[in-house]
Design a binder for these strands. Structure first.
Length: 579
DNA sequence: GCCGTTTTCGGCCCGACTGTTTTCAGTCG
């Protein structure tokens, strides 16, 4: 059973306890444990075998015992008994906006409702408004919530879709005369790979004016709630958006609050309490009632005795402790990237010529560009035969002469790791290349042991320099391969093979959690766009966001290295000589 | 149920908005 599945058990326990009416902090304890298990860098089974479950934050004696039972027996007696008491299907009611545990319990106990369909029927029949504490408006909202849920169905969307929408709304906000500053917050600012809703923040002295304009934006389909400080809307495409408006004097604390994550904010507020301060979006309040206004986030953190913590780290994954101890990483930045090592041309399945890719790289200010077209067996991608690969080398040499010293061109290939773990070109051909990416595009569904061995074989091949998009996942479309990631990362560290963080917002592969584990194990990384078109070079920022979420520092990223260091590393590997 | 630059027991984040209320509960972020 993997981390995700174990985490889900505890999440469901927390939800069931809420509906049951359990009061207090046990619920949060289960939620925190679930989040901790989900974002653990290692597999829960490994930690369990090694007796290290208690090292996970939020996992104490009781939850460790429950994990042990789950992994030994595949079941949990406590959970089974709980779901006998409270029907599990009630959990789907919680997905409806404006329905929480209290209302779900009310519908169940008073009307015997246990499914979404039953809830909808009751609402249409006017049964809900007869219940205590509800009226016609609540009933109408719940019906709208059910319809919105059915329309949406997709849940969270890719950050690649969310970012352009947020940019559009921010531009519109910045054009308003009453707006002094407008910024993204929430999971978007933390560069999470998927986004549940857009969180936007504005600094203004005239909040009503901003809110009024926002409600009228053409992107807005429906206003869910709107006050002086906060407006919540549903956009035309079903996505929800929040807008907060605060004065510039407390913009910093408001931005900190709106950025989250929830877990980070809770930890930060507890730290504030321990120092006799109460933290909210309005600022820091001392015991005597005096409020310290914070115009910048730096002021929020420094008043708590902390350095500013980059948004990508704010996931309650140990960043506050690290900040207290002065151990925050010096995160890689977009400007640290000096070149691209994974790019395609129309020699295989790219949509631009070599010349066009080279010129785009010059435009982007790269110091180097590796062309890495697909290898021969990948027919769907027009993979290069050995003859075509050698012809391409001549073409690249010609282009190198044209551009001279302005850009270093590397001739590489994205070589298929075949189903048995061998590579798609013979060794003598690989030896001719400047850089070799090894990737898996086929037989992704091999059983765990088999596909892990396949990668281990590739890692041990002397000519392999980088492993491309390790898991093969496409977010929301294709699950990652069933892989023993820990073994692969350890082998990569040992073989001195780098791992790609693929910047395509549908891949982001390695993901943040695996990137962080790779850093802990001493692996090298490469942040690459896998560009199939000149426009794709702009995707670097997504990979950098993921890398930063993985606590990645520039010195461990191949394409942050200066040209000479990169060349020296490549030439020292795989028995290549410097010819 | 977890956890300790206050603590192994007694704490555990904070506020906005809405609807159905005569002063607040529920939901959300």
């Amino acid at each position: 059973m993997d981390n995700q599945e174990v985490a889900e058990v505890f999440e469901r326990i927390a939800d069931l306890l809420q509906i049951k009416g359990e009061q207090g902090y046990r619920i949060r304890a289960y939620q925190r444990a679930a989040e901790s298990i989900r974002s653990a860098g290692q597999e829960i089974e490994t930690l369990w075998r090694e007796g290290k479950l208690r090292q996970l934050p939020g996992v104490g004696e009781a939850i460790a015992k429950k994990i042990d039972e789950i992994l030994r027996t595949g079941e949990l007696e406590y959970y089974r008994r709980l779901s006998e008491e409270v029907p599990e299907s009630l959990l789907e009611l919680l997905q409806v906006s404006d329905v929480g545990p209290k209302k779900a319990a009310l519908f169940w106990r008073e009307l015997g409702i246990t499914t979404l369909d039953e809830l909808e029927r009751a609402a249409r029949a006017g049964e809900l408004q007869k219940l205590p504490g509800l009226g016609p408006k609540s009933e109408q909202k719940i019906l709208q919530g059910i319809e919105a849920l059915r329309r949406r169905r997709t849940g969270r969307i890719s950050i690649g879709q969310a970012l352009p929408m947020a940019v559009q709304l921010l531009e519109r906000l910045r054009a308003l005369p009453a707006v002094l500053q407008a910024e993204a917050a929430g999971s978007l600012r933390r560069w999470r790979e998927t986004i549940g809703d857009l969180d936007l923040l504005v600094a203004s002295e005239r909040p009503e004016e901003v809110m009024e304009a926002f409600r009228q934006f053409p992107e807005v389909a429906r206003v869910r709630a709107s006050g002086e400080a906060k407006t919540s809307v549903v956009l035309q495409d079903g996505l929800e958006a929040q807008l907060w408006v605060h004065r510039p004097q407390n913009f910093g604390s408001a931005w900190q609050y709106a950025t989250g994550s929830k877990g980070h904010n809770i930890q930060l507020r507890e730290l504030a309490l321990s120092r006799g301060l109460s933290l909210s979006e309005h600022g820091l309040r001392k015991a005597n009632g005096q409020v310290i206004l914070c115009a910048t986030e730096q002021e929020v953190y420094s008043n708590l005795g902390l350095p500013w913590i980059p948004p990508e780290l704010r996931e309650d994954r140990g960043e506050i402790r690290a900040a207290l101890q002065g151990r925050l990483p010096k995160l890689v930045e977009l400007d640290d990237l000096r070149g691209e090592l994974h790019a395609h041309s129309d020699w295989s399945d790219g949509r631009a010529t070599l010349e066009e890719m080279v010129h785009a790289a010059l435009e982007a200010g790269f110091e180097y560009l590796a062309i890495t077209d697909h290898s021969r067996s990948l027919g769907v991608a027009n993979g290069l035969s050995i003859e075509r690969l050698r012809a391409q080398r001549e073409e690249i040499k010609r282009l190198q002469e044209q551009v001279g010293d302005r850009l270093l061109l590397l001739h590489g290939a994205e070589v298929e790791v075949l189903a048995d773990g061998t590579l798609d070109y013979p060794d003598e051909v690989l030896a001719e290349l400047d850089i070799v990416f090894a990737s898996v595009h086929s037989s992704l569904r091999q059983p765990r042991e088999r596909i892990t061995e396949r990668y281990l074989r590739a890692l041990n091949h002397p000519h392999v320099d980088v492993i491309g998009h390790l898991s093969g996942r496409l977010i929301g479309k294709r699950d990652p391969a069933d892989l023993d990631v820990e073994r692969v990362l350890q082998a990569a560290a040992q073989c001195d093979v780098a791992l790609e963080i693929n910047c395509d917002p549908l891949r982001l592969d390695l993901n943040d959690v695996h990137a962080r584990r790779a850093m802990e194990l001493g692996c090298l990384l490469a942040i690459c766009t896998d560009a199939h078109h000149p426009d794709h070079f702009a995707l670097h920022r997504y990979g950098v966001g993921t890398a930063r979420r993985g606590w990645v520092e520039a010195e461990r990223v191949l394409n942050c290295w200066p040209r000479a260091k990169l060349q020296a590393w490549l030439q020292a590997r795989g028995g290549r000589n410097s010819s």
